[in-house]
Design a protein around this nucleic acid. Structure first.
Length: 368
DNA sequence: AAACTTGCCAACCGCCATACG
DNA sequence: CCGTATGGCGGTTGGCAAGTT
């Protein structure tokens, strides 16, 4: 069990991949695409099973991987998405361009979970929400019901999406994400040079100086690759559907597929599904060039309100996280279920609509 | 300096869903 | 419709490096 037929036909190597094996796999996939993974090892001259090749490509060799440290913004997004989706790492990773489900899962298990455990004294969600400012009792009741019925957490009624004022929580957790040593770049890997040699347009490994509090390709905007000229070796397809915007290639449909997941030749662009595609089961294929924040994925819109997107740019270039942004993300973290085994049905109130922080509310008394 | 502990993360395992003949 | 192959996912493990005693 667990091994596919291709793995049993011949002896296969297991364990860590060598740079030579990586090179063989990169050369093969970039030239021919992976096609049927079970045939890749044979055609690429590898003593591995197809499943192992697939995993190595998806989790490490794909040129669109960041391979760097998670930014505070990414951490916040993971926390938020996990509160909605539970341990559906692949779904979460789709909203984090350049990140794999394995990476997100490891990050959660090693870092976020630990921090949440340290906040065990945070009060229950109900005490976080101060609905008395603008809420008639019946709407407050609607809000409460959202925590009971997982199917009703998408608020379609504008009244329901009125702003909820959240008590500002301690920002220690989120701040720790941006300050402490967990946000250092990954240790150097022997194969990084190899990958960057093959994929010069791949996102760069962050440096010590820029990862602590800022990641220029943070995840709320679709990943766009620099407009490099690519040679024939990389099989660049017709990019007529893309437009050049601020020296970036952007797919104006806002929709797309990850070429590395579908076995096609390498492409220079990638977009990610919007959260609403998951939550609502439909597509929001609005042109990026004309879409307003209100029309974006609600999560993106909400987070964008805290991490402003400068007009006309493809993604935020803010160099630091402002205190109110810290508050917002911290609110996300402290409002999610503390159980590490939260399932897909565990929904935080933050999944329910629009929120803003109310800086006038007292924060003392329950700061960790 | 050596032994031990801890944490990270790449890779594997086992299961499920889907495609295909 | 059925059986098999394959892709994909989440859970788990083992090796390694860094930190601690």
């Amino acid at each position: 069990m667990g091994h596919h037929s291709c793995c049993n036909k011949q002896k296969v190597k297991r364990g860590l991949w060598s740079p030579e094996e990586d090179e063989k796999l990169i050369n093969y996939v970039t030239t021919y695409g992976h096609g049927c993974w079970s045939s890749v090892p044979r055609l690429a001259g590898l003593q591995r099973c197809g499943k192992s090749c697939r995993l190595r490509w998806i989790n490490y060799l794909r040129p669109d991987l960041k391979r760097g440290t998670f930014s505070p913004q990414e951490a916040a997004l993971i926390v938020e998405l996990h509160s909605i989706l539970g341990n559906r790492w692949a779904q979460i990773a789709k909203h984090l361009p350049g990140r794999t489900d394995n990476e997100v899962k490891n990050f959660w298990n090693s870092s976020i979970k630990k921090r949440l455990a340290s906040l065990v004294d945070v009060p229950a969600l109900a005490s976080l929400v101060d609905v008395h400012n603008s809420k008639p009792p019946e709407e407050a009741a609607d809000f409460v019901s959202l925590n009971v019925n997982p199917n009703s957490f998408i608020l379609s009624d504008q009244r329901q999406r009125d702003q909820l004022y959240l008590s500002p929580s301690a920002s220690s957790l989120l701040q720790s994400f941006s300050q402490d040593t967990d946000f250092k770049p990954n240790p150097s890997n022997d194969n990084v040079d190899l990958i960057q040699h093959h994929f010069p347009f791949a996102p760069m490994l962050p440096t010590l100086s820029n990862t602590a509090s800022f990641d220029p390709s943070w995840p709320l905007m679709p990943f766009v690759a620099p407009n490099h000229h690519l040679d024939e070796k990389h099989h660049v397809p017709n990019l007529s559907n893309e437009v050049v915007q601020d020296d970036k290639l952007v797919n104006p449909t806002g929709a797309g597929v990850n070429p590395y997941e579908y076995g096609g030749p390498l492409m220079a662009t990638q977009t990610v599904p919007k959260l609403c595609e998951i939550l609502q089961g439909n597509l929001c294929n609005m042109p990026l060039t004309s879409v307003s924040l209100e029309n974006l994925d609600p999560l993106v819109s909400r987070l964008s309100s805290c991490f402003p997107i400068s007009a006309g740019s493809s993604y935020s270039h803010d160099m630091h996280v402002a205190p109110n942004q810290m508050e917002f993300i911290d609110t996300i973290i402290t409002s999610m279920p503390l159980s590490s085994s939260s399932s897909s049905s565990s929904l935080s109130a933050l999944s329910s609509g629009q929120y803003i922080t109310n800086p006038t509310l007292p924060s003392s008394g329950w700061d960790p």
